[in-house]
Amino acid sequence: MASDSRVKAVGEIRTAHLFDMIVDLNPRLSMGSGPFGQRILFGAAGGSFEGPRLRGEVLPGGGDWALFRPDGAMALDVRLTLRTHDAALVHMTYGGRWITPPDLRSDMADPVKRYQIDPARYYFRTTPLFETGAEQYAWLNDIVCVGSGYLVEGGIAYKVSRVV
């Protein structure tokens, strides 16, 4: 490939820990197989989050309108409401991908084994964005984040980092 003079050297992408989050889930609701795969709602029943600059609870009522694609991958479409320890409300959205290698799929379907699998063996990444009117958390409106997810009993956990 020929070098393009418009390409500039920029700093490497770095991240800083924002918070860890546990989302407790309601029983899943299958919407059946559609033209793009099988759509399932994993409704949020609650949860918590905690990090250096904010902490609080995940409110019930949000969820992941996940799409299980024909190739076995899962596409995430999540909307959650967070309430901070000082009562501010934050709207959190994220997409992402959960790619489970074929040799792990039977263990992931097992209700006991799924929690024993090392999350490094599958790819579960998200791209959180936030929206709030709370002045003390207005900085959340202007950041982009990345997250790594993994299974926990009763739900899903994430380590969320902001891109600096």
Rank of each mutant, 00 (worst) to 15 (best):
G37R: 07
F68Q: 07
Y122F: 15
C145R: 01
D71T: 08
F49P: 15
V78R: 00
D107H: 12
N26R: 06
A87V: 04
G62A: 05
R79L: 09
L151F: 09
M1W: 06
E153N: 03
V160T: 03
R14Y: 02
L140C: 14
A9S: 03
F42G: 01
Y115W: 07
P128S: 09
F68P: 10
Y115M: 02
R53K: 05
A73F: 01
P70W: 07
I143Y: 09
S30I: 05
G63N: 08
S161E: 09
L41W: 00
F42H: 11
F19M: 12
G63D: 06
L76P: 07
G62T: 04
S3N: 12
T81E: 06
L59R: 10
L25W: 01
G63R: 00
S106T: 14
W65L: 15
L129S: 14
H91G: 04
G72N: 05
N141R: 12
W65E: 12
G61W: 02
L140H: 03
Q38F: 00
D71M: 08
K159H: 03
T126L: 14
F130T: 02
G95Y: 07
H85Y: 06
R97F: 13
V164W: 00
R6H: 10
A87M: 10
G32N: 05
M92I: 03
R121H: 05
R97C: 01
R69I: 02
W139D: 14
D64W: 02
N26A: 08
P119L: 05
I143P: 15
S33I: 14
Y115V: 01
D142Q: 14
Q116T: 02
A9W: 01
Q136L: 15
G63F: 12
V164G: 04
D86Y: 02
T100A: 15
Q116N: 05
I156H: 05
M1K: 04
P119F: 06
N26K: 10
G46Q: 08
L82H: 05
G149E: 05
G96A: 13
S3G: 08
E131C: 12
Y115T: 02
G46I: 06
R69V: 02
G62R: 02
D71R: 09
